[in-house]
Amino acid sequence: MLEINNLKSRVGDSDILRGLSLSVNAGEVHAIMGPNGSGKSTLAQVIAGHEDYVVTGGDVQYQGKDLLDLKPEERAREGIFLGFQYPVEIPGVNNAYLLKAAVNAKRKHQGLGEVDAFEFLKLAREKMAALGMDPKFLNRGVNEGFSGGEKKRNEILQMAMLEPSLAILDETDSGLDIDALKAVAQGVNTLRGPDRAIILITHYQRLLDYIEPDFVHVLSEGRIIRSGDKTLALELEEKGYEWVREAASA
């Protein structure tokens, strides 16, 4: 589904990704871990197409297409979803309105008709109930005045509604209490399926207790320095990142 080959990227004057390669197949869940500043969020932003992140080398294939050729909205319509680490507030823009516009933009791209308001609301309410969200949130401004946990749940709601092929969750677990963490994990697990792939970006093992990854990668200084199965995450938790770095440079 996603083939990243020797990807290099820079923000402003600094090189962040320095030759990153990663292969993700349908049905797989990948966890990407690593210390602050290792390039985890940059990877997410580059895949989503943020213009501040300049690609200086390498290529990315997504479902056989050259991903780097596509605008951010085209990538989204092709099924890439980014759950933001810091979801932005958009005052005055109704949450339901954004969500419906997003769902319909994707449906239109797929040659499907627009979903009607009644159907949309019904579906949204179901998904919200499953995530333990108050339906009132639909009528509030996008993330406007939401708490940290509410913002993250809102991201998961959007993901559930948009049913992406590739979901990248950038530190969705940070700042969540245990109930919110469970709700988020449940949302992600519901999405898991043979046609979908999920990339979890996280600092901690904690999230992986609830979402079991097929692969764990350690990112350091813009490269993947070690890959393994879920036991790697446990080992990291115990020994810390220094251990992998030393092992890698040895």
């Binding site: 989503a48 605008k71 954004l98 969500l99 997003a102 994707k106 791209h109």
Partner: peptide, 8 residues
């Protein structure tokens, strides 16, 4: 960017 990432 947030809106565009949602396909808008």
């Amino acid at each position: 960017f947030y809106c565009r990432q949602r396909g808008i």
